[in-house]
Structures are given as C-alpha cells and as structure tokens.
Design a protein around this nucleic acid. Structure first.
Lengths: 144, 144
DNA sequence: ATGATATAGTTTCATTTGCAACTAATAGCG
DNA sequence: CGCTATTAGTTGCAAATGAAACTATATCAT
C-alpha cells in the first residue's frame, strides 16, 4: 500500500532531493533554501519585486519570505527600494554582491540538477516537469 | 531559472500534495502523516516490525517514528510485542482498532490519490512512479 | 566470562515552521 | 474628506522537527 502510494513516493523522493540540494547550498554558499529562492526570484525581476509577490509566486509563507529577506538584507545581498505605489511594501532588488552570488550559484545549481537527473533523457525531463505542473493545476484548481 | 528548476518544481508540487493529504488524514482520522505511515507499514508486516526497520524503510527519523509509535500506542491503535531476538526493541503490531482504522483509511487514501492524479492515464501514472524511483536510486547510490 | 563497542529507542534541547495578533499603510464607501 | 475594511510586512508564540545525549541491551574480541 504505502510503497505504491504516490503522495508518499512523491514526498519520499522530494525529501531525498531537497536534502541533497539544501546541504549543497548551505555548504557552498551559506544559503538556506528560502534564501536561495529569494535570490533567484529577485534576480529574475530586476525592476524589483515585493515580498508578497514572491510569496504568491513561490507559495512560501509570508513569514518565511520576511525572514529570508531580513537575513539577506543583513548580509547585504538584497536591498529594499521604496515602492512608490504602495508604501506598506518595498521593492526588493539584488545588491552587486547579491548579483555576484547569483551568478556563482546558477551554474552550480544546474550542475546539481544535471547530476540528479543524469539518467533521464531530455525528453523524459520535459515530461516529468510537465506532469508535475499538471498535478499543480489539479490541486490548485481545487479539484480535490 | 527557479521556475524551471526541477528540485524546486518537485518541492512545490510535493508541498501542494502533502498539504492536501495531511489535512484529509487529520480531518477524517485524526492522524498525522507519520502516524498514518506507521499504521500502513505495520499493517503490511503482520508478523510485527521494529521501529528501526520502519525508519529504514520510510527514511523517517527514529525520533519521528518513536513519537508516532508512542502516540498510536496511547490511542490503542498499535501494540508492542516482545521481541525475542533483541530485547532492546519490540515488534509493533496493529490492535483490532488499528486494523479497523487501517481498513477505513485505505479506500479514502486511494480515492484521494485518484483525484489528485485524475488527469493521468494508468500508463502515465506508472511512468511517473518509475521516474520517482529512478531519482531515488540516483540519489541513494550517492551519485551526487 | 569480561570489558569495549555498537545499536534500539527515548528524552532533552535547540532550531525551524507557520498561525495569529499586531502595526502601518491603502482602498472603498458614505 | 473621514470612517471602516483590507492588505503588506513583522513579531510573538506554540507546535513540529531533528541532532545529540542518554539508557538499556546486544555483540565482539580477547
């Protein structure tokens, strides 16, 4: 039963992968997963992005986002720009050091991904990703 | 970058699915995920199984297993049999109430799984599971 | 046998997590 | 405008997690 139960298998595999990835980021860059996610999202939104937008995109709790942001700002990897349109929030952007770190992480992340999926063809990888997204859709559509 | 990064996608999807499953188990049976896993594993090992064997199989921390077992024993869903071969451990078995609960959960779990994967063909489901297992192999083989 | 080392399981403690309450700013409605 | 309701983000608190220390039993080498 359990062994063939897909939510269990999914969780099992994800834990394995996440542990691997988390310890690599920690060892190489001193970043935890939420911190790395913020760096990546902010890097992809060079015009700046609010914490709540990050939360929406990644489904991370706003508390998690808040704490990751605070920690990165402390370390001068992230900066807050005033947000004209809504002064409750700020726009997060990367500092030069943040950019540099991002550029250093990306190739390592891709390399790691490549190793984890080393026995998959391009085609299989695409298919796997598409299946994950279909599951997301189903669950998010509330078809539960 | 992040959006296409497979360890991230995997974690994203798993979180969605796990939240769904966890709240269903909690609401329907008052069980947390580790507790449900113990019930299932013990049900599949009617001759009894030790906590450490459960930990090995499921990769749950021994503390998690210990606490889930204690809680289930408190609720008379699980019982400890003496373990002749090694008295540091016990063999966990289901009580009649535990069996009954197990028989009640299984169809609900399958139904939920069915809903989550409703847009997948049998074939796709098999393929998805096999991919997850291949990832497990790669990571567990230390090919990282 | 006897002492040294290892293992099963529990307990303790520190860390992580996320909900809920809070603060500050905004939006909507009279 | 001015009052109420809502939202962005932080802080406080309680629950969940896991590493490390601990207890009890087992194994192994002499």
């Amino acid at each position: 039963m359990l062994d063939k139960f897909l939510p269990y298998r999914l969780s099992f595999t994800t834990n394995l992968v996440s542990e691997t990835v988390a310890s690599a980021y920690e060892a190489l860059f001193g970043l935890r997963i939420p911190e790395w996610r913020l760096i990546a999202v902010v890097a992809e939104n060079p015009e700046g992005i609010t914490q709540q937008a990050i939360g929406l995109k990644t489904r991370m709790d706003k508390v998690t986002v808040s704490r990751a942001a605070a920690s990165l700002i402390d370390r001068h990897l992230l900066a807050r720009q005033p947000h004209r349109a809504d002064q409750r929030s700020h726009l997060l952007t990367l500092t030069p050091a943040g950019h540099e770190l991002y550029r250093a992480i990306v190739p390592k992340a891709l390399e790691l991904e490549h190793r984890i999926f080393s026995r998959f063809s391009e085609n299989e990888i695409a298919q796997f990703e598409s299946m994950l997204r279909r599951i997301d859709e189903i669950v998010l559509d509330g078809a539960i």
